[in-house]
């Protein structure tokens, strides 16, 4: 029986690879947009303007305090009621970007705050513009603190992208869910889905660990 299902599963493999591609597309686009949003929000959150900081605090709290499943339901089911129509793909990317942006905002703000204030003051004394200070002095130093958790966060977002399957995006998780209706071997089907996720996430986790070790070493050398 196992052998029979295994052959069937083998035949549906192209379907799984298509799903994997969809997972790549959704999480990849959301990660790029989320990183841009997160950096912009993080720099604003680390600034001294209260009118920027407090709304961003609230945004981050809302995104981190509610399940992503509820967020995607809100975007997909409620926004149309308010006259904002979007396809499932756009809704998935929109919600995942907002979600990723909040976590990345916290990481970036933490990184910027870890840079000693003397650095910014010295850069100011040298006559650098605010943009130059951020770009040339603060961010390069903050990146050491930002990079390891950022890569770790990417892994979490890729894993959370499995949830977009509930609004009908045919990613790997949904392919598994559809397949298990025909091939009733849950262990095998979702074992395969797990292996596909593992092949993406595990190298990234190793990369994050490697960054962490390297950044620690560099810090020690200073």
């Amino acid at each position: 029986m196992w052998r029979f299902y295994f052959d069937q599963l083998y035949q549906t493999l192209p379907f799984f690879l298509k799903g994997l591609w969809m997972t790549f597309a959704v999480s990849g686009i959301s990660l790029v947009l989320g990183t841009l949003l997160g950096f912009a929000a993080g720099i604003a959150r680390a600034s001294r303007y209260a009118w920027l900081r407090y709304p961003l605090h609230f945004y981050v709290d809302v995104m981190r305090g509610t399940p992503y499943l509820v967020q995607i339901f809100i975007v997909f089911f409620i926004f149309p009621e308010w006259g904002i129509q979007m396809t499932a793909f756009v809704a998935a990317i929109f919600s995942l970007t907002l979600y990723a942006g909040a976590y990345i905002c916290e990481i970036v703000a933490g990184g910027i705050e870890s840079v000693p204030p003397g650095q910014a003051e010295a850069a100011k004394a040298t006559g650098l513009s605010p943009y130059q200070r951020m770009r040339r002095v603060i961010l390069p130093q903050a990146m050491r603190v930002i990079l390891p958790p950022l890569v770790g966060q990417y892994v979490l977002i890729i894993k959370d992208s499995a949830i977009v399957s509930v609004i009908g995006i045919t990613d790997v998780t949904r392919v598994g869910w559809l397949t298990v209706q025909r091939i009733p071997e849950g262990l095998m089907v979702f074992g395969l889905v797990g292996i596909l996720y593992f092949s993406i996430c595990y190298p990234l986790i190793r990369l994050a660990n490697w960054f962490e070790r390297r950044m620690c070493d560099e810090g020690a050398r200073l």
């Binding site: 892994v155 894993k159 959370d160 992208s161 499995a162 949830i163 399957s165 998780t173 598994g176 869910w177 298990v180 009733p184 071997e185 849950g186 262990l187 089907v189 979702f190 074992g191 889905v193 797990g194 996720y197 593992f198 996430c201 595990y202 986790i205």
Partner: peptide, 23 residues
């Protein structure tokens, strides 16, 4: 630990939900 951290919770839930009965 590495297996759990590298796969989505949703997939783990489905794994047990659809998989345990076949065991």
């Amino acid at each position: 630990i590495e297996l759990i951290r590298s796969t989505p919770l949703l997939v783990q839930i489905y794994f047990f939900y659809f998989g345990l009965p076949s065991l």
